[in-house]
Amino acid sequence: MKDKRWIVTGLVVFLLIVLFPFWYNRGRAVPPPEVKLTEKAKAEKECVLSRDYMKAEHMQILDLWRETVVREGNRIYTNPKGREFVMSLSNTCLDCHANKAEFCDKCHNYASVRPYCWDCHIENPKEAR
């Protein structure tokens, strides 16, 4: 065990590097973002599914939508309340949530997720039309 010194030093350095985000950001709490709803979205009261579900699982529903539309060619989504939606990120979701920067991006930036939806799907179809 003549290498003990080196092993311990190595471990300490390793831990320091791995835990970098923790000690670097200590004591600095960034407040969770407040997402803004557009007037249209407010008036709707409820989204495709309940607010809590959408908050936590919207990516699941988007994934289901894209699979269904692209692969099965089905484009209409009827929610449990019987309301119909055209399954389209740009044309349905962003119809209400036209404020992508204030709505989508805020949370995504906070959580540091970078969905590549916007590489293809146009951010706000209504805006320039």
Partner: peptide, 15 residues
């Protein structure tokens, strides 16, 4: 479990 009540997926009427 993908959401409680089952939503329906289908084609549009004009398809």
């Amino acid at each position: 479990d993908p959401g409680a009540a089952r939503p329906k997926l289908g084609p549009g009427r004009e398809q």
